[in-house]
């Protein structure tokens, strides 16, 4: 159900291991590459804005890519204008990204800003592309609690994937060495964020205390010993099974549980 000449670009970034902080391929970006490889095979283009000498980029090449384009810029640069001008002329039908970066600000705004500036629709939480025909794509969107939603979206569009997308394949050493990193010289734009903001090591968040605003000892005692009580729950006694089932059915419909 997929056309042969599909032009897909995946945007990748450098990730950081959650415990050690070592540079690695970013988890969600690797999933985006995996999804792109499944859709476009060898013709997938992968794009990175940053330092082309970074060894962690080779982990993406090790997934079976022959080359990776790097828009060269220092780490404090703003990637958005570079990517915007590149994508304007690239003629891509689908741009895949992760949902948020593992290093730096990690606000997850990049796909939203790109979509706004390019005037393309944006799909959040892409899980699967079912078919692409007549300039429309039918995709599955991942929702919380394991649910899925089917969407129909016009090409070209931007999609960001999260952890519901297929797991990324392993990176192999040989292809990672053989792959080409193509550096492009572009004008560097500085990011205005770090003028008034600074990073600090993440503090563990304080655990929320259960504050009991009791005025008397009896109230405090009651709050400390109270069992989980729903209070005014409705109890149906001595009803026929049909009437009971009807009441349950009504509540399920009201809560939207029967789809």
């Amino acid at each position: 159900m997929l056309p042969d000449n599909l032009n897909i670009i995946t945007l990748v970034s450098i990730g950081a291991h959650p415990t050690s902080g070592r540079a690695r391929r970013a988890e969600q970006d690797a999933r985006a590459v995996e999804l792109g490889l499944r859709l476009a095979g060898d013709k997938l283009q992968v794009l990175h804005a940053g330092n082309p000498a970074d060894e962690a980029l080779r982990a993406y090449l090790g997934m079976g890519l022959s080359e990776l384009t790097v828009l060269e810029q220092p780490s404090h640069g703003d990637a958005l204008p570079l990517l915007n001008s590149y994508l304007k002329d690239a003629g891509a039908q689908l741009v895949l990204t992760g949902s948020q970066a593992e290093t730096g600000e990690g606000s997850g705004m990049l796909p939203f800003l790109l979509a706004e500036q390019l005037g393309w629709p944006l799909v959040v939480g892409l899980a699967e592309v079912e078919k692409i025909e007549n300039g429309m794509a039918q995709v599955l969107q991942a929702l919380p609690r394991g649910q899925r939603r089917r969407l129909k979206v016009r090409l070209p569009f931007i999609a960001c994937v999260d952890n519901a997308a297929p797991t990324a394949r392993q990176s192999a050493f040989g292809p990672a060495r053989r792959g080409q990193l193509q550096a492009c010289e572009v004008a560097v734009v500085d990011d205005s964020l770090l003028v008034d903001a600074h990073f600090q090591p993440a503090r563990p968040r304080p655990k929320r205390l259960k504050v009991i605003k009791a005025k008397t000892g009896a109230e405090r005692m009651k709050a400390a010993t109270a069992k989980a009580a729903g209070g005014g729950g409705q109890v149906l006694k001595d009803v026929s099974p049909q009437a009971g089932a009807e009441a349950i059915f009504k509540l399920l419909v009201e809560e939207g549980m029967l789809r």
Binding site: G15, A16, P18, G21, A101, E102, T103, G104, E105, G106, L193, D196, A197, H198, F199, Q200, P201, A202, R203
Partner: peptide
């Protein structure tokens, strides 16, 4: 929280 949760961003 910034990045993958190892840093905080104060602004």
């Amino acid at each position: 929280r910034a990045g993958a949760g190892r840093e905080d961003l104060v602004r």
